[in-house]
Amino acid sequence: MEPDDTFRDLLGLDLPPERLSEVLAAYRDILDGIRALRSLDLTDVHPAVVFEPTAPYRRGGTDA
């Protein structure tokens, strides 16, 4: 990956090229783990975090 202006815009990181290179280098080890995650076929799996539209309406509770 070559750091350039478009790339920095995509990331929203206003970093000088040398600093961006450092961050990318540090990310390489983590990227190995993320590659392993990407290798899973989870097409039919719903994410664990679920949209819950009643949340703002929750009040009180039974703090037993």
């Binding site: 990181l13 993320i34 995650l37 994410p47 664990a48």
Partner: peptide, 26 residues
Amino acid sequence: RTLVEMGRLVTGADYLKAEQYRSVLM
């Protein structure tokens, strides 16, 4: 600093795949 800046490199798809992974791990 590095970890906070690095978080910008995680794509939305990777994040949601991680949440899918949590479902199967749970």
